[in-house]
């Protein structure tokens, strides 16, 4: 079962699925391994990047528990939950694209990639709507307008952290959707899977990881401190 799913392991790949070996590599296996490892190393840095923000949340939680709880109850937890569900769906469609690419099913791959991009865009639209709601409820302390919790200055720190964390995640997702659309544009060519199947694999890791980070953001920033 696992070996059959692992088409990328260079054994038993169907006709017309493969990669073009760049000159610095000895063979395709080495190139796949390097690309995969490179993406994991990058994801390591992404995890540590967000860990700094989670650390700030934990410290605020320890130093100002009441203010953090009060601020967290003003976050739009249902929009956050819906967005989590959207990203979980997009992870499934991304896996669909990877599976299809391993079997050389180009049309399914393209459909799944587009579906993933659409779900990512839906996430961003919901996120924008959430920010707009925050604006209407005077929960944007850094803007030049009254702040709903002005009586408790420490709540401001947590709200600021919420905006920074979600905005940084949204930046990652925006970049992700842009790369995804660019890759889909290239992948529409018939011979794409002959040459660059591992792009889909490597990109899939990134997408799943952005999903993973959001699950952590939702739980740690929206729900736990309430």
């Amino acid at each position: 079962m696992t070996t059959a799913r692992r088409m990328s392991a260079s054994v038993a790949a169907p006709e017309g699925v493969g990669i073009e070996v760049a000159e610095q590599f000895a063979d395709a296996t080495q190139q796949r391994h390097a690309a995969q490892l490179g993406m994991w190393a990058w994801l390591l840095t992404e995890l540590l990047l967000f860990a700094g923000l989670f650390l700030c949340a934990a410290v605020l939680h320890v130093t100002h528990p009441a203010a953090v709880a009060r601020a967290a109850r003003h976050l739009k937890v249902w929009i956050g939950a819906a967005n989590t569900a959207v990203l979980i769906c997009s992870s499934l469609t991304m896996t669909g694209a990877i599976t299809a690419s391993r079997h050389g099913w180009r049309r399914w791959m393209l459909r799944c990639l587009l579906a993933t991009a659409a779900l990512g865009t839906l996430f961003l639209l919901l996120k924008g709507f959430e920010y707009y709601q925050d604006y209407l409820e005077h929960m944007t302390p850094f803007l030049d307008r009254p702040y709903a919790l002005a009586g408790e200055p420490a709540t401001r720190l947590y709200i600021d952290l919420y905006f920074l964390t979600t905005a940084l995640h949204a930046l990652h997702l925006t970049t992700g959707v842009a790369i995804l659309l660019g890759m889909t544009w290239i992948a529409r060519k018939p011979r794409f899977l002959h040459r660059h199947q591992n792009w889909i694999e490597v990109y899939g890791l990134y997408w799943h990881f952005i999903d993973l980070i959001w699950i952590m953001v939702f739980t740690l920033i929206y729900v736990v401190p309430r």
């Binding site: 937890v77 249902w78 939950a81 989590t84 569900a85 979980i88 699950i215 939702f218 739980t219 729900v223 736990v224 309430r226």
Partner: peptide, 10 residues
């Protein structure tokens, strides 16, 4: 898991 977290936390 998401559902459980929402139930427990919200």
């Amino acid at each position: 898991g998401l559902g459980a977290i929402v139930v427990l936390g919200v």
